[in-house]
Nucleic acid binder design. Structure first.
Lengths: 204, 204
DNA sequence: GTCTATAGCCAGATAGAC
DNA sequence: GTCTATCTGGCTATAGAC
């Protein structure tokens, strides 16, 4: 098996620090507004050193996207391990998790259409593999929840899946948070409610 | 009254053409990805001529945002004129209208946080006035619909308003449209359904 | 007010010493 | 692998002739 030298550990730690900075800056300002100089300054190294680890700005962002997808995968593992949970409860838990990540300022926003970032991601096997894996897991829970009658059977699973992804970077959270009038917990409850029960609300 | 010379009519027509191009390009690629050269080429005039009409790229975008808000205002006028419509029906009609505009490729996306565009818009009286006017009208319908029990009373009107604004540029529509599997009408029905009734759907 | 040509700037990427 | 210094290209904005 591969020997992990001290040198390599340091390298990993540094790359981890880089990805953390990128992740935060992506969440804060988005891909276009984030500059590589900023990232370097935030990490505390020279810009040229960044390019020894990642060959382009797009690859930097891709690393952050991959990390958040892996965090999502890890969370779904935890949910999957609890066999008491019904599919709808798992979906709600995932949605809640995405909102919490967003509130923590750690959710990089979805790539805009037709950007250089989107092209890079669509050509990045590591990103796509993880995206598909997350989609597969959620997709299975969605169809199961529809079988239970807990998710609208008239909606294609695709629509439900895309909606959950979109809510993970819903600007509504940022707007409410910026207002400063409400607690984080309250905001999350409202957004979960509008996501699953709609603006109309419960009609039990 | 002000005389509208032929010269001035031509000027208005040209500015109108400019704003149309900007609007379409904003919807297609967003503010950062859109270049002034592109706008000029699309309109068919030189870039320097653009700057005789609008003093900056931000002002170009602001003009497009103002136009879409005025279109929204005009649509609310029509709805307000029909006194048979209940508040919830008006809100649904507005939501449907925003989706139709989005499908037509005419909905400029919401300004990202902390961008130069956001700063410019927040300092633009014409934009803010219209934004507030739209918000006021929708706000009145929202509280009325809540009084009717047709919109969730547990949600602050603010949350409902922000959600409607956010759905006007929901990436889900673009994803479904890009898939090419479904008709425009079908996509709109699904998105309206998830917006008002949530992923859980009707439980009548 | 329209054009061509260009200034000025900024950000992504690289050279080359250590 | 890290640094400083620099290259390069693209974009906003403007000068100046007509």
């Amino acid at each position: 098996m591969a020997k992990t030298s001290f040198r390599e550990q340091m390298l990993r730690a540094r790359e981890d620090a880089i990805v953390s900075s990128v992740n935060r800056l992506l969440a804060e300002k988005g891909f276009e507004a984030m500059t590589v100089d900023e990232v370097a300054a935030d990490v505390g190294i020279a810009k040229a050193s960044l390019y020894k680890h990642f060959t382009s700005k797009e690859e930097l962002a891709a690393a952050a996207m991959i990390r958040i997808l892996e965090r999502a995968l890890a969370f779904t593992e935890i949910l999957a391990a609890d066999d008491q949970l019904r599919p709808i409860a798992r979906l709600e838990a995932v949605a809640r998790w995405t909102l919490e990540v967003q509130l923590a300022g750690e959710m990089p926003s979805l790539p805009a259409q037709n950007s250089t970032l989107r092209n890079a991601l669509m050509a990045n096997r590591g990103y796509l593999d993880r995206l598909f894996e997350v989609s597969d897991r959620l997709g299975a829970w969605i169809t199961a929840a529809q079988a239970d009658g807990e998710i609208d059977r008239q909606l294609p699973a695709e629509v439900v899946l895309y909606t959950l992804f979109a809510r993970a970077c819903d600007p509504v959270l940022g707007l409410l948070k910026a207002g400063g009038q409400h607690s984080d917990a309250q905001i999350i409850e409202w957004l979960l409610r509008t996501c699953f029960r709609g603006l109309v609300g419960a009609r039990a």
